[in-house]
Each structure stands twice: as C-alpha cells, then as structure tokens.
Amino acid sequence: MTTLTMKAPVRGDVTGKIVAVLVLLAVWQIAGSTFLPDYLPTPFGVLTELVPTLTSSAFLTAFGETVGAVLLGLVLGCVPGTAAGLLIGRVTWLRQISTPYISGLYAMPMLAIVPMATIWFGYNNVTRVIVIALSAFLPCAVSTADGARSLPANLGDVARVLNVPRGRFVLDFVLPSALPFAVAGVHIAVGRALVGAAAVEFLANIDGLGTFILTNARSFAQNQAFVGVAVLALLGVLARAGTERLIRRVAPWQQTHQD
C-alpha cells in the first residue's frame, strides 16, 4: 500500500517532472500542428515570439497601462476595504446592516458589473480603476471583518481581567489578530484585480494587456496573445507569492489560512 504523504523524495520526482513537461510540450506541438485548430499557439511559436513580443513597444505600453491601473485600483480598494472590514467586524449593527450588500456583491462575478460601470463612467480608464478597486474592496472587507471577529474568547477575558482600556484593546488585541486576515484579503484581491482589469479592457476596449491579448488573438497572432496570457498569469503568481510571504512575516504565529 502506498503511503499518502505528499512530501515525496525530490530526486526521483525531478525526472518525472521533466518527462511530464516534455510530453506535454510534444503533445501540444504535435497536436497544434496536426489536428487541433490552426489558431492555437504552439510551443515553438511561443518560443520564437517570446523575446520579440516582450520587447515590443505595444506590449510594454499595454503592460504599463494594466499594471499601473491595477496598482492604483488595489490601493483605492484595499485601504478602505480593510478599514471597512475592521468596522464591520467590531460594530454589530454596522455588520448587520451591510451584510446583504457585502454578501451579494462578494458572491457576484465582478465581470457582471462592467456593463453598468461603462454606462456610469464611460469607456475609459476610470471604469477600469473603479472595477479593480471594487474587486479588491470586497475580499479585503470580508476577510478583515472575519479577522476582527475572530479574536479568541479567552483573549477577550484576559483583556477584561487586566482592565485594558478600549484604545489599547483595539491596538493590542484586535489589530494583531485581524492583521493576517487583512493580508489574506489582499492576497485574494490581487488575483481578482488582475481578472477585473483584463475583463474591463476586453469589454471597454481600453489599452492594456487585455486588449493586447484580444487584438493579437483577433489578428491570428495567437503566439503573441499567449505571451500576454502567460505574463498575466505570472503577475498573479508573483503577487500571490509576495502576499503569502507577507502573511508569514506579519503573523509568524499563524498558519496561512487560505481557501
């Protein structure tokens, strides 16, 4: 019987991984050039287009546009989102009054809000930043609210026994326990922000990585388009790795609690 531990010895696995990559690439290449539709990227195609695409001015402009909008949107979404989360978590009536809105919006695909947003704010960068900010606001608020509520009951008792004043209670008890949750909120927000950016760019035709992918795919430059997709994916991975490290930094006592 095999044991179910995932911590498999590394050495044996490397060959497996290399083999898997090679098989995957080979299947992809052969399938792409024989029976799959012609408009799919192939490994060779992507490889030859990689450097020219990454250094093209069209790509660099698009990259700058999207990253700039995402960063701005993240700041505009996460800061008020975290603050709102703290309030919602600690003030009961605020939580009760906002629950239907927050849970309705949180569950909703942010994509579905874009048509409304384009009517309100036009087909421009404002819409993009607002959708990104909203995509970031909700996970930050929900996660931080969870954190602010998650203060262990016996710690609350400790505070009462020690007669901790209200201000100190927030500083020494509530904030530290909410902090990892707040970072976890940012962690989710980053992924959603990138998706939101791409979606708005598609729908509203604003300059950025989304439109870069779209125009290339439409003009059958599928390899260039794929480079764009890969860059978006990489951005998401890097940002998430960053926030994960941040969680471990700010809350070494806690395991990363993520879904």
């Binding site: 791409a198 598609f202 992918i213 388009a225 994916a233």
Partner: peptide, 21 residues
Amino acid sequence: WLVFALQSVPIVALAPLILAA
C-alpha cells in the same frame, strides 16, 4: 505542480484564444 501552475492562468485572458481556436 502543473496543476498548480495552470490554476493561476486567468481564464478571462484565455477567452480570446479559445474564441479564435
């Protein structure tokens, strides 16, 4: 590990490629 890598590809961004193909 491939699964974990693929998981981070935003599907929105893939949409134009899927459409083309």
